[in-house]
Amino acid sequence: MSSPREPAPGTGRGAPALVAQGICRSFGGREVLRALNLTIGRGEFVAILGRSGCGKSTLLRILADLDPEAVGKVEVPARVAVAFQDARLLPWKRVAANVGLGVRDPDVEARVARALADVGMTDRHRAWPSTLSGGETARVALARALVREPELLLLDEPFGSLDALTRLRMQELLATLCARYRPTVLMVTHDVDEALLLADRVVVMVDGVLEHEVTMGAAASRTRSGDRFGVLREQLLGMLGVHGH
């Protein structure tokens, strides 16, 4: 399923796209993030795996500048785009207006049209969000993020609410678009397969720190049928505390 693409090195190729140092965040005395460090290289696709409630979404919100109370140092590029699990399309704007919102470019319409074509939603550009299916909503949310030509793309369980078939198709679409535009991506997910299929590097988050890291090898290991896939899957599930699969 994945298109051929070289694994991007974690660091070393120029300045990293994202640096987070000593990120701490607690809610009412409960420490959710404990001095967390993360560096992502330019063009790298990193997936953060973790059980629900481990703080991975909190980290993403901090990186997206949605959490004024977090402590630590964050360096992100100028153009950051976010896609949420619950899409968050504004219900009072048609699809095209949602995608183009906040884009400062005299040629917004052409860019929106291109982004909608990329996700296969050209013929739905005048639809109201409430009339879209779950998969269509996810596509529009992806278009809305990509139209900004982000240097850093933050994905918070972008396909978490989709049915299994739709999720597979969306993962395929995301892989294709990432191969085409090569943004730096940080994706938060609890789906081990999704992380293995899409990411160059998989990081496992446990109790507010990034504990384990698995760097994916050649593209071959990113297919479900590859030999390494099963091994890595078993390994990651073990790190997440799931055994016997």
Partner: peptide, 9 residues
Amino acid sequence: RFVEAAHTL
């Protein structure tokens, strides 16, 4: 959540 989304846009 809509306000947050607008902020990220």
